[in-house]
Design a protein around this nucleic acid. Structure first.
Length: 214
DNA sequence: CCCTGATTCGC
DNA sequence: GCGAATCAGG
C-alpha cells in the first residue's frame, strides 16, 4: 500500500468519520488490517472496540487473571530451513499485559450504526460512474435520495486536523474525483442552507427519482 | 457464523 | 513501516 499524504489524509478523514475499518478498507481498496495497522501507527484515536478492554480496572487481581496469551503461532510465510541445533526452546518470554492507565478521552458522539448505514450503504457514486447494477432505473422514492458516498453528516467538531477546506464553516462535501485517486477533494463551495452540498451539487445529489413518468 | 477492532510479529 | 494472521468480544 502506498501511503501517500493523500491516502493518509483520506484514511484519517474516514477514520474520524467513524467508518468501520472494513469500510475504510473497501474505499481505499485495502484490507481492514491495513487500515487498523496504519491507523495505529498514525496514532489515530482508537474507536470503541467491540472487544472489552482486557483490564479497565487498575486494581484488579492478577491472581486469576493472568495475561494468558496464546503463543502466537505465526505461520505467515514458509520458514527458512535453517535449523540450528544450538538454539533450543528456552525463550519463554512472558509478556505482561501493558497496564497503562487509560487516557481520559471523552467519547465522541458517533453516529448510530443504522444511521451511518443508511447514509453509507447505498452509494451510487456520482464520481467514478461504475455500473454494477444494470437495473438501476429508479427504485421508487418520493423523497430526495442521498447518493453521494461521503457522509452528509454534519461536520464534526474538528475544525482543523482534517482536510477541511481552507475556509471554515459549512462547505460542500461533494467529492471531486474518485476516492482512491490523487487529486481527490471535496467541492468546498458554500452549501445550500441545511444541505451538505452547494447548489450545483445539491441538484445532482438530490435527484428526483420520479423523473420517469409512465 | 457474521461482524467489529486490537494486537502480534514476520517481512 | 507494513499488513496478514490472529485474537477476542458482540
Amino acid at each position: 500500500m502506498d501511503w501517500t499524504d493523500e491516502t493518509i489524509a483520506r484514511l484519517r478523514e474516514l477514520w474520524s468519520q467513524g467508518l468501520s475499518t472494513a469500510e475504510i478498507g473497501r474505499q481505499l481498496s485495502i484490507t481492514k488490517n491495513a487500515v487498523v495497522g496504519k491507523a495505529h501507527r498514525l496514532g489515530l484515536p482508537p474507536r470503541p472496540s467491540p472487544i472489552r478492554n482486557r483490564k479497565v480496572k487498575d486494581g484488579e487481581t492478577p491472581s486469576t487473571e493472568t495475561p494468558r496469551r496464546k503463543p502466537p503461532t505465526r505461520k505467515v510465510a514458509a520458514p527458512k530451513a535453517e535449523a540450528s541445533a544450538d538454539l533450543l526452546v528456552e525463550k519463554t518470554e512472558a509478556k505482561p499485559a501493558a497496564v497503562k492507565a487509560d487516557t481520559p478521552k471523552s467519547a465522541p458522539a458517533k453516529p448510530s450504526p443504522a444511521l451511518e448505514s443508511v447514509m453509507m450503504s447505498p452509494p451510487p457514486r456520482p464520481v467514478a460512474a461504475k455500473v454494477d447494477s444494470p437495473a438501476r432505473v429508479a427504485p421508487v422514492a418520493p423523497e430526495p435520495r442521498v447518493p453521494p458516498p461521503v457522509r452528509p453528516a454534519p461536520p464534526p467538531r474538528f475544525t482543523a486536523s482534517i482536510d477541511r477546506p481552507a475556509r471554515r464553516g459549512p462547505s460542500c462535501c461533494w467529492p471531486i474525483g474518485d476516492p482512491g485517486t490523487p487529486g481527490f477533494h471535496f467541492c468546498g463551495a458554500t452549501p445550500l442552507p441545511g444541505k451538505p452540498y452547494c447548489a450545483e451539487h445539491a441538484a445532482i445529489a438530490y435527484v428526483k427519482i420520479r423523473d420517469r413518468r409512465d
